[in-house]
Simulated scan of single mutants.
Amino acid sequence: MPLYIKDDTTAELVAQLAKLRGLTKQAAVRLAVQAELDRTREAIPLRERAAALRTAHALPPPTGKAADKDFFDDLSGTL
């Protein structure tokens, strides 16, 4: 889907970024938008991001079995 930049100031900023980075204007827009998305996501506190991950990928219920040295030795095989 095409993106038309109708604002001359924005178009000039894109052209400046493209020239400085040696990119096409399309790549410059992609780079700038991705950088802003990354900054926005990083602005969310780590505690909230971790909580969302825990909710989306919950741990399985505990088995009640002990994970002792023999258990880990068995996992690693003959290492």
Rank of each mutant, 00 (worst) to 15 (best):
R47E: 15
R47V: 14
R39Q: 14
L53H: 00
Q34K: 09
G22Y: 05
E42S: 12
D74V: 06
K65R: 13
V33I: 15
F71H: 13
D7L: 07
A66L: 15
L13A: 11
D38A: 14
I44G: 06
H57G: 03
A51L: 12
A56I: 05
L46I: 05
A50H: 03
K25N: 08
D7Y: 00
R54N: 12
P2C: 06
E12L: 05
L59W: 05
L79M: 13
R30K: 13
K25C: 04
G22A: 13
L59I: 03
R39G: 10
T55P: 05
Q26H: 06
F72D: 01
R30I: 12
A56D: 06
Y4M: 02
V14S: 00
H57E: 09
R47Y: 05
R41F: 13
R47W: 00
A15N: 04
I44R: 09
L20C: 03
T9S: 07
A52W: 04
E36T: 11
P45N: 09
K25R: 10
A50V: 10
M1V: 11
L20S: 14
V14M: 01
L46W: 03
P62H: 12
L31G: 04
R39C: 10
T10P: 01
V33C: 01
A27Y: 01
E48D: 15
Y4D: 02
A15T: 06
G64E: 10
D7F: 01
